[in-house]
Simulated assay, not measured.
Amino acid sequence: MTDALLRPVRGGNAFEETVQRLLQTIRLGAVGPGERLPSERELAVRLGVSRDTLREAIAALADAGYLISRRGRYGGTFVADELPTGGAHEVTDASPEPLSPAAVVDALAVRAVLETGAARLAAARALTAEERERLQSALEESSGAASADYRRLDSRLHLAIAELAGAPSLVPLVADARTRINRLLDEIPLLARNIAHSDEQHQRVVGAILAGRPDEAVAAMQEHLDGTEALLTGFLA
Rank of each mutant, 00 (worst) to 15 (best):
L170S: 05
T92R: 12
V206G: 04
T18S: 12
V9I: 08
L164E: 02
L236F: 10
T233I: 13
I26H: 09
L114Y: 04
R156K: 12
P168D: 01
P33A: 15
T128K: 01
R41N: 15
L139H: 03
A177L: 05
S143C: 06
R111F: 03
Q20K: 12
V105R: 14
L159T: 02
A175T: 01
R193M: 12
A148V: 13
A165W: 01
T25W: 10
R125Q: 11
A57V: 03
R180G: 03
L67A: 07
D186V: 07
A4S: 12
Q24G: 14
L23E: 08
T77S: 05
P101R: 04
R183H: 13
E35A: 15
A64K: 09
H89M: 07
T233G: 06
A146L: 11
G12F: 07
E130F: 01
E223I: 02
Q203R: 15
D93A: 15
A237S: 13
L54M: 02
L153Y: 06
T128I: 00
H197M: 15
S143I: 11
L225I: 08
A123N: 06
P189H: 08
R120G: 03
R73L: 11
L43K: 10
G12L: 08
A123W: 03
A4V: 02
A162N: 04
I161M: 06
G76C: 08
P8A: 07
D176N: 10
Y150S: 09
L191F: 08
E16P: 01
A177E: 05
R132E: 13
